[in-house]
Design a protein around this nucleic acid. Structure first.
Lengths: 201, 201
DNA sequence: GCTTATTATGAATACTTGCTCACGTTCTAC
DNA sequence: GTAGAACGTGAGCAAGTATTCATAATAAGC
């Protein structure tokens, strides 16, 4: 951020720019999103973009920061409700929460996912992994008889990426091969089965 | 393809262009790959590109066609060797074959995967899914006592995408969270466990 | 009210890149 | 050998876009 906004109006401009970035990406795609489009949608001139952001990338980065933050909050909100349930219910709940999170902004998330090479998108996955690792660590502690995974980080890595990318593929398919419910059932089956495998006999 | 090459030299130019496209994408990334770069690497002038390809996209499409073809052949070669083994061995074998296939051109495949939104990349996955569906259909026929999946296409969709994208993520990670062997073990565990779940009692 | 700091503007700049086209070269057929 | 077809060339065009900067408007401090 090139200049730190000190007055109220400038803070509103920054907010409007980030919001406009999200909308423009969702509507036109990241590649077709220009600084002029963003400025126009935010109701300011291009110059204002460079008042607060060094370049286009920083602006998108700021949007990502906001989304990563939202994600963290969403996970933390849903977490305590799940810990008493069994593994299958937890996974199903997490999937449901995931779909709900993407929910209204499906296009935006899909578009961001299409560009997961940009460093920033990776932060999203890392954050998600970190949170999920915490969930399963707590579960493993409570149910140490049913679940004892020697390498939790790797297991979470595998499950997280499998879930996320399969869902993204599903969402970006021109015509779905099954209902959303079916997909969630299958993913739950796969993930829960995998995570529960090493039950102490 | 705008003009069909009839002489030998022009056929060599077309081949050189496709090969140069692969190398340039691997080295500079798809976004930074310009028609001028490709022509230069192929040792011809830009004009020649448009002699045989309507635009840049067609050129990349031709490369994709070649790769999809390679993939099909690779799967077909390895297939008969696997059918007598058990599910776990099959999955492990497929993963091994997958890594071997990507092998030398890791950067190219990674770069293409980063742009999976382009329609063409999807053909790759579809082809893979189709082949794998055939593998598991045959397996299910032989071992109908151990594996009875009511919706094979969906199961294959889930497994394929989970494997492919988890591996791609693994490969694009700056520092790996585990060895390649460990990753394959875990993926095998997850996939084989999932596919075998519905054993008739 | 006056001064100074902050904020907003948008035409102009600088640069990239896909693609064309007029011209030169090589091949083929007779 | 020569005409005509196929092929190759690369400077330059056209279109788009990130970024700047001189100028103007607005707010804050006194």
């Amino acid at each position: 951020m090139r200049r730190k906004p000190s007055q109220e109006r400038s803070r509103q401009v920054v907010e409007a720019l980030i919001e406009a970035t999200a909308q423009t990406i969702a509507q036109r795609g990241l590649a077709q999103t220009t600084t002029n489009h963003i400025a126009a949608r935010a109701g300011v001139s291009v110059g204002s973009v460079y008042q607060y952001f060094g370049n286009k990338e920083e602006l998108v980065g700021a949007l990502l920061d906001k989304l990563v933050n939202d994600l963290g909050q969403a996970v933390d909100r849903g977490l305590p409700l799940l810990l008493d349930a069994d593994l299958r219910t937890i996974v199903r709940g997490l999937l449901q929460a995931g779909f709900a999170f993407v929910g209204g902004n499906e296009k935006l998330y899909l578009e961001l996912a299409r560009n997961w090479d940009q460093l920033s998108t990776q932060r999203f996955l890392r954050t998600l992994e970190r949170h999920l690792q915490e969930v399963f660590r707590l579960y493993a502690l409570r149910h140490y008889r049913e679940m004892h995974i020697d390498n939790l980080p790797v297991a979470v890595f595998v499950v997280t990426n499998s879930m996320v990318f399969t869902i993204l593929q599903y969402l970006s398919l021109p015509q779905a091969p099954c209902t959303r419910e079916t997909l969630m059932d299958e993913l739950t089956e796969m993930a829960a089965g995998y995570l529960q495998r090493r039950a102490a006999p």
